[in-house]
Amino acid sequence: MSGVEGGPNYSVEVEGLRVQFGDFIAVKDISFNVNAGEIFGFLGANGAGKTTTIRVLCGLLEPNLGDVRVMGLNPKQGLDAIKSRVGYMSQRFTLYDDLTVDENLSFAASLRKLTREKFSRRKKDLLEFIGFERPLNTLVKNLPGGLKQQVSLCAATLHDPDIVFLDEPTAGVTPTYRARFWSLIRSMAASGKTVFVTTHYMDEAEQCDRIALMRDGSLIALDSPGGLKRSTFPEPIYEISSSREKLDEFWFESIKKRPEILKIQPHGLRYHAQLSKGVVEGQLRELVSSGCVVRVIPPSLEDVFIRLVEGGLP
């Protein structure tokens, strides 16, 4: 694979990558590595620069600055070598709606110049892999959205790439199909492929080995989901709930003003609170009435991202 001999094994290496569209800098000097065989989540709000970065890594866009290596290959030494080891499922249409499943796959095979034997073998394996049970001459436009994305995954991995870039593969797909798609992602990673995936769903981000968070073209965090939670919230988060009395607006407004409370936010019928420096759990228990239940909870990824994104604001 790649990397220095005996060094770490990376599928993607990015060093000081910058992409500019005219005066607008879409990707601002970011650096990161993706380990071989991991599920790498790429997160960020709309326009953060995720697709732009992926397009560079797939050899579709030339960077203005910085070094990129994919499977140890440098784009400057020829894009075709990279393209043949990379699978790409773009954010937009990747299949032709007016062609059948079979026609789409065989066109993908001819783009990749697969031999007839390899094509029929891969097609059989992949359709088995996704559990495709409809007739192969079904027009793609007649498939449900979630199934379309699975067929699209087949088309993108027909040539057996070492790494797949999936740009929002589950956008607009039902929860059942999302879960199904992620089980496919996990099996692909288990079989040794590197999966580079973008998503806006937190439950999907939780399933990544590592997550990179982009904001306005910069990389603001990169760690495993657990690591991100620990580093972003070193102090515990307390959940306050009550089954007996109603924790209403008045209660919220009064407790918010207490100096012991650093921050408190409503979460449905409950509240999440953080304490000021030096304040201990016992003090919080005294503060709220005896009917309340106070317990320490792990932060959700959503909390992490909200804090990371807001925390960075001037």
């Binding site: 579709l60 393209k83 990379v86 790409y88 937009r92 990747t94 990749r112």
Partner: peptide
Amino acid sequence: GTFETLVAAP
């Protein structure tokens, strides 16, 4: 957007 898929192939 299928053009992206075309050019993503070698």
